[in-house]
Write a protein that binds this DNA or RNA. Structure first.
Lengths: 354, 354
DNA sequence: TACATCCATGCAAGCGCTTACATTGGTGTT
DNA sequence: AACACCAATGTAAGCGCTTGCATGGATGTA
């Protein structure tokens, strides 16, 4: 690849982008001074500083991050691994996370795992390799190797979007099951007895699992048989939500309420309901989870579980910063997820014959 | 766990995460061998390889990316800077971009600029500093400093989501204005003469600018006076779209059609229309742009400009890979944006009195 | 048996930066 | 005038990794 020839010609080496040394030479100072000029400007005389900054601009110099990290042993970079970037499920929380980090001069690197623990493990390695000082992770489900790796690397991390007192790790979030149970009680209060549930695949996704459990628990509490619940698992997407809804509605005993593990699935259900000529909530009720943007704009507006996205993001950032600084991040935090009552949940229709 | 023995030798050497040297020592080989084992496994004997990989696993070793980049002068990392992560406007295209890069063993780093050229400049520097070999940028509007910097650094970059033959840089996208003009003609064909336009702020956003121009051009072509268009600029968000819609509809001469520079704005307009008791499209028509997920699920489904997200993402990736490899990326590519006709655009209502 | 080859491996020189320490010259004190 | 002090700068030792070159032993060939 590298033409040795050019080297010979190019006595003044031409190839790479400008380095500290180039700047130093142009400004007529040592590399140490340039470095100080960039990192601790007040330790450099006004005059020199101007000369150096001029040279920087003139050369279009950008410090090599890797080299800097290598030499200084800190990166001021955190990482976040979210299951998906699509559908904006994590967007708002992540935004809050990033805002708070920015306030501390920390840059955020984001990766997505496509809901795969194996992929997530890879991403964890990649982010740590890139110098992430701390990591934001979603939920508790991951490979043992991931946990072992984080421990060996001593990388601070918090788990968000979930709260489970029985876990040993720092986490900030809400009880996914409790909120879903509460919503289920509302559904039951409205007379629904045949409930369909569209969930994301539960393996590798504790939030989805807990949400399902929440429904089951509520049913059990009210003395309803487990088989009054029809469950379909399908990855988050509008199309999948629509298909699952149709499948539920074409079974012998149609559910009168379809609860969804996520607003995206619910949006799909809603649109398919319309296509099937079913009125929501008169003919069938639909509920969501997460309260993302689309929950408000679909027709009818979605009754869903409102998740404290921003508080979670902000809180996670604060915990991580504390941990990075060797301070006490405080205990895990449980936030409240509330029910956003809108239009898609109504009383169970009166069964014609039965 | 690290054997205490090593600690004794290295009296002050405990803190960091495991390095190549640690692995080498544990495996009883030189660092060079470990490095080869990780990068060119076939140049290492089966036996050694196993020993080394065992050591790697045992220590939870992750190579330091910065150091590796420093030593090898390549990163296999590309960067992308998109205006926003929210609203999923760029999600699908970015996903395609990433998929294609993955196929070439390249990692993607994503940053967002919040539609600010200054912030984008910062992000460009940050990504280049982090070793991005090439960059995906959106549109043509950026600071002269950004362009100068990219040139000095010789960082390959392509501009997507736009196509403008008059620009000198590689780009892949579609003519934002042409597509909007085409849609406008459809609107005019349906008898609309009073048109409202909700656009994103045009400064620093060539796509928004061209979309507006598209409307203006179409009007001019049909001999309509420029003041038959009412324009409101507001950042992309559902709430903003709703507010802008209400503002448009409370003017003296109400538009019969409200065109939006983006589906998110259109979704907001739609929801506000409903709240105001206006039927779409009987009382007022609404159109969008981008054809993102929500376009299909809002009620009524949005008539909008369908953008070739995936083709753009994939194509951009291929161009950049070629450029990085020193090959010919071929000329800029113009893709076709088509009109997705759905339900939100209908004939202009018959004016009662006038 | 002598020699040329060829793997597998080790040695050591950096990659671009930060930073502890050394050096310098100008101030203020006595 | 002698000295301590300090701010500004330079010197140089790495940070963890890759890689060109050197080495040594096993294998093949004459």
């Amino acid at each position: 690849m590298k033409p040795a020839i050019t080297r010979i010609h190019a006595i003044e080496h031409d190839p790479g982008s400008p380095t500290l040394a180039d700047v130093a030479q142009l400004a007529g100072v040592s590399t140490a001074t340039v470095s100080r000029c960039l990192n601790t400007p007040d330790r450099v005389s006004e005059d020199t500083r101007r000369r150096v900054l001029d040279a920087v601009r003139q050369l279009g110099y950008a410090p090599n991050f890797g080299a800097r990290a290598l030499a200084s042993r800190r990166t001021d970079t955190f990482g976040a691994i979210i299951p998906t970037m699509e559908a904006a499920i994590f967007a708002r929380g992540l935004q809050a996370f990033q805002d708070e980090l920015g306030r501390h001069g920390i840059t955020l690197l984001v990766a997505s795992s496509s809901y795969s623990p194996e992929l997530e493990e890879e991403q964890i390695r990649a982010l740590v390799a890139r110098g992430a000082d701390a990591l934001l992770l979603i939920g508790h489900d991951r490979t043992p190797e991931s946990y072992a790796f984080l421990a060996k690397q001593r990388t601070p991390h918090v788990h968000a979007w979930t709260f489970d007192a029985s876990r040993e790790f720092q986490s900030i979030g809400f009880d996914n099951g409790k909120a879903m149970a509460r919503l289920t009680h509302k559904v039951l209060d409205l007379g629904h007895r045949n409930i369909g549930l569209i969930s994301a695949p539960r393996v590798g996704n504790d939030r989805a699992r807990q949400r399902c459990e929440g429904v089951r628990e509520a049913l059990a509490t009210r003395g309803l048989p487990p088989d009054s619940l029809r469950l379909i698992e399908t990855p988050y997407s509008i199309a999948n939500g629509a298909a699952a809804f149709e499948e539920l509605m074409s079974q012998d005993t149609r559910p009168t309420a379809v609860m969804c593990g996520n607003d995206v699935l619910a949006a799909g259900a809603l649109s398919r309901a319309r296509k099937m000529g079913l009125r929501v909530p008169q003919d069938v009720s639909v509920t969501g989870y997460d309260d993302i943007d689309i929950a408000e704009i679909v027709t009818p507006a979605l009754t869903t579980v409102h998740v404290p996205h921003r508080a979670m993001g902000r809180g996670a950032a604060r915990m991580l910063v504390a941990m990075r600084n060797g301070e006490d991040p405080g205990p895990s935090v449980e936030l409240e997820a509330t029910i956003a009552e809108r239009e898609s949940l109504g009383p169970a229709p009166v069964t014609p014959g039965h």
